[in-house]
Write a protein that binds this DNA or RNA. Structure first.
Lengths: 210, 210
DNA sequence: TGCAAACTTGCACGTCGTGCAGAAATGCTC
DNA sequence: GAGCATTTCTGCACGACGTGCAAGTTTGCA
């Protein structure tokens, strides 16, 4: 797909840029309309009109409304994988994943703050979507499993890499669920959830975790 | 809904029994046909015909085919909650949850072995369904969160109960994903996943977890 | 400039999922 | 067991969903 590259720096063609723009326009339109009227009362036709493309094109990008709300970025998986690889070698897989995820969230939040705020609003209205988000594999679990397996010297089919990845996804879900209700920054909530996880769940945390 | 009961032992009325039968017939038909032809190539009409009810009735029980595959038992949530409550008081919340879940799975497997085998087959063909299973909240997370909160003396909105529940759901998902591929009993895989979780994910398990 | 590849669009078609209202089955009381 | 309230089933209608297909348009590249 990418033909032009130089030292890992990929030049984005006009076509690629337009695709990203269309995708983002669709996501934005979906979130805006859903936040306004509730996702169920928005038709794909409305969304497409708002984004200035045909209905058919919407379905070229997403399988349905749900997916437009959830999967904002198809490159998140590979990017996260690279973030993990770039963590210092002395970090345990868990530390590396935690750091990578927090960095990713921080960057993402400063980059597309408006989108995330809309998302927060929509999720507040439709908690069941949260689960679907991860259902469609937003975290691109395979990339993560691969990166963790690599770093831990285990196979991708071993329990540990899969479990760490899945549990991290769970932490993310918990963080977002709380984020939609509480007035606290997402990064903080995510860090807290991951800490509870890393402490092992065997013992009840004595201190807060409120 | 239940009018007749005696000392907590609920007498099931004819109506209730028929509902359960219809529900089970629909689930069974869905799984059988899906295992045979692939879920996408089965229509609700086929399923309904196979289960000997009208199409409309199918939608009285489930929102769609996915749900019929996933949510086998609406009472699993409360039942699991009670199992947790019945665990010895000296158990930590994690231990209690683990024991309760393993018991539940064991009972469920001996009870409806054929259904689970079909499920295994269908999930093997449609891994994306696995995530949707938990998306629709099969584990009835709220009941679990409540039970854990109760046992740990924390609020339902605290991080720990939510995180423990979500992580357990993740463990279950991992176990099922592996179960669909590997030739090992589900209970064993689930126990393994939970152990990895309970050990804390900070350290890579030295031994197996293969 | 011109060709190939990728993207968009409209159309058709079958399926999905729900509201509604009447028919049928069940529970309960007398 | 007769009668009434409640619950469940069913058929119908209707709008929305999601995809295959073929033609039109845009972009990449030589």
């Amino acid at each position: 797909m990418q033909k032009c590259s130089y030292l890992g720096l990929v030049t984005e063609t006009l076509r690629d840029r337009k695709k990203r723009q269309t995708r983002q326009a669709l996501v934005r339109a979906t979130l805006r309309l859903a936040a306004e009227k509730g996702l169920d009362h928005v038709t794909v036709e409305e969304i497409s009109t708002a984004a200035d493309v045909s209905t058919r094109t919407f379905f070229n990008y997403f399988q349905g409304k749900d997916e437009a709300v959830a999967s904002s970025d198809p490159e998140a998986g590979p990017r996260l994988r690279d973030r993990i690889r770039n963590q210092p070698a002395q970090h345990t897989p868990f530390e590396a994943l935690k750091k990578a995820l927090l960095d990713e969230v921080a960057d993402e939040l400063t980059e597309d703050r408006d989108l995330w705020l809309l998302r927060k609003q929509v999720i507040g209205q439709h908690p069941e979507l949260l689960a679907k988000v991860f259902a469609s594999g937003e975290l691109a679990e395979r990339h993560l499993v691969a990166a963790i397996a690599e770093r831990s010297g285990l196979a991708e089919t071993d329990t540990y890499p899969m479990m760490l990845t899945a549990a991290t996804g769970a932490a993310f879900r918990v963080a977002m669920a709380r984020w939609a209700c509480v007035e606290r920054p997402l990064g903080e909530l995510l860090g807290e959830a991951l800490d509870v996880l890393g402490a092992g769940l065997s013992e009840v945390p004595t201190q807060g975790g409120s």
